[in-house]
Amino acid sequence: MSAEKELRVRPIRNGTVIDRILAGQAMNVLKILGIKGAYSDVVTMAMNVPSKALGQKDIVKIENRELEEKELDKISLISTGATINIIRDFEVADKYQVELPEIVESMVKCINPNCISNTKEPVTSKFEVKKDPVQLRCIYCENIITENIAEHLL
């Protein structure tokens, strides 16, 4: 199978492969998953892998973990085309593309320091999502985030 050539490190038995990540975003995906220094399971990351469809892509593989809804939503914000491959017993058991949510709540910090969502008030941030390119519009102050969304993730 052609995937053999891509498997530079040992295959995982159970876990998740996040494929077709926008080149350059793999580190941010790790950040979203809370993988910083010490982590008990096998994690592999590949950056700037040649890809027919994308030119280049990043890949992240994590053993023994399936992702939560919120993590998937965050990944969709920084890499709309990423695919999630659930690996069970070395085989791809399920495969789907991340989906941009219409509203993101408590995931992103508003860039406007004077926004009510950035005060001690009991409100969490809430954005409307627009596609192509991804734009987040704060429902409170209407400021729009278009660039470096990864930097504003909560």
Binding site: C115, E121, V123
Partner: peptide, 13 residues
């Protein structure tokens, strides 16, 4: 009247 943007929308909630 409140100095933070979005405060009125929050108040409505």
């Amino acid at each position: 009247r409140h100095p933070s943007e979005g405060s009125a929308l929050m108040a409505a909630e």
